[in-house]
């Protein structure tokens, strides 16, 4: 199990030998904490702006996903301008009875706004967004010029 994990390194470019060392150190930290089942090579980017997003691409589209549980589609605002996508909204909770006694309060309500630049040119007219089980998926088609071209050798 461990060895497979160890060699199953996601494709990453090692920028400097210290990256490699850091990675090794984190791997060892992970071992001593005993949670060897999760991948020790997670490298999450942190922007510090809500919501956290994952961006992926395939040949034709960019996909932007965010975890937004409890947010209705009507409380979300998505705007695309050029290569910049702006996502804002508000998370509201339904009012609970006043005389309830709280034991845990970990969920938070509030507003958010985030803008980010897409890596390539996009077709602004065909952006699609949908919410499913608290996951927002924005599909942004790439502009024809940004799509990879298959070149056949004659």
């Amino acid at each position: 199990m461990l060895t497979t994990r160890f060699f199953n390194i996601p494709t990453q470019s090692f920028k400097s030998p210290f990256d490699e060392l850091n990675r090794m150190r984190r791997f060892l930290d992970h071992l001593t904490q005993g949670s060897a089942y999760s991948s020790p090579f997670r490298s999450l980017s942190q922007s510090g702006v809500f919501p956290s997003i994952n961006m992926t691409e395939d040949v034709d589209n960019y996909f932007i996903r965010a975890e937004l549980p409890g947010i209705k589609a009507g409380n979300l605002d998505i705007q695309v301008e050029g290569k910049v996508l702006k996502l804002s909204g508000e998370r509201k909770f339904s009012e609970e009875d006043e005389n309830v006694q709280y034991h845990r309060r970990e969920r938070e309500a509030g507003t958010f706004s985030r803008a980010f630049t897409l890596p390539g040119d996009v077709n602004v007219d065909k952006v699609d967004a949908k919410m499913s089980n608290g996951i927002l998926t924005i599909t942004v088609p790439k502009a024809e010029a940004a799509k990879p071209k298959q070149i056949t050798i004659s």
Partner: peptide, 15 residues
């Protein structure tokens, strides 16, 4: 998993 199999990561902020 809700991400397509043929998608490649550009930015990963949550797991």
């Amino acid at each position: 998993p809700f991400e397509g199999a043929d998608e490649s990561d550009i930015l990963v902020e949550f797991e």
